[in-house]
């Protein structure tokens, strides 16, 4: 059994080593894009069951974004929805024999965490400007600036570690049980792994939305505003 912390390169493209996780990611991307294209080819005002299911998915995502951030879901739908769908597909790809989920590798989860980190900055700047984004670090008061800067890194790091730990551990446990007890014994663990994969995808997407919305909201209020609102709450 290989170490889950190491990735062996299948081949090289110039200086870039191509691992199995990257190839699996490409396959998942192709399946998702082609599937999405095929599913959304014939959308009409009189929806079919397929269109209703798609609209239900998008509507549920919009509701989650709206309830989490209180903002209009359109600017965040593409990023948050794709994060959820990709992580879910990657997690559940472990059900295919011989396929190791990309999210069980450090590089994939780290890349997702980096994207969330960048997206927080992107949406913060886009929502409130550079000044507004920088002000978000001074919430609730300027004393918190160092801690907030540290938190902006650690929170995405925690996301990365949480996703990697859950998925990798599931794959690792199933592999150990399968090697020790036989072929059918890991099936309950695989079922549990399905649930874990769904929950982790949901948590990652919701946390990404929470981080983005908190940055946008904090950047929209000055520290004085925040102090005033805190005093009102205390009284």
């Amino acid at each position: 059994m290989n170490s889950p912390l190491e990735s062996a390169a299948l081949f090289q493209i110039g200086p870039v080593p191509i691992t199995q996780a990257i190839v699996t990611t490409w396959v998942i991307m192709a399946v998702l894009v082609v599937g999405a294209y095929l599913l959304t080819r014939r959308l009409s005002l009189r929806p079919s069951k397929r269109q209703v299911a798609l609209e239900l998915l998008v509507d549920t995502l919009d509701t989650q974004i709206r309830e989490t951030s209180g903002a209009q879901p359109a600017p965040y739908r593409g990023f948050i929805g794709t994060l959820f769908v990709f992580i879910l597909a990657a997690n559940w790809s472990s059900l295919i024999p011989g396929v190791e989920p990309p999210t069980a590798k450090l590089e994939t989860d780290a890349a997702l965490a980096v994207l969330v980190f960048i997206s927080v900055i992107w949406f913060g700047v886009r929502g409130n400007g550079v000044g507004g984004y920088l002000k978000s670090f001074a919430a609730p008061n300027p004393v918190m600036i160092p801690l907030n800067m540290l938190a902006s890194v650690t929170r995405v790091f925690s996301m990365f570690v949480r996703l990697f730990g859950n998925v990798m551990s599931g794959v690792f446990v199933i592999a150990i049980v399968a090697s020790l007890a036989g072929l059918l014994v890991p099936i309950p663990l695989m079922a549990l792994d399905l649930l874990t994969g769904l929950v982790q995808a949901y948590i990652f997407a919701v946390l990404a939305m929470v981080f983005i919305s908190s940055t946008v909201e904090d950047g929209a209020h000055t520290p004085a505003d925040l102090e005033t609102s805190a005093k009102k709450k205390d009284s």
């Binding site: 990257i22 990611t25 991307m29 990709f86 590798k105 890349a111 997702l112 980096v114």
Partner: peptide
């Protein structure tokens, strides 16, 4: 690999 996966996800988004 990290960078490539990030690019992959951005393209997928």
């Amino acid at each position: 690999g990290l960078g490539l996966q990030a690019i992959n996800v951005v393209i997928l988004v």
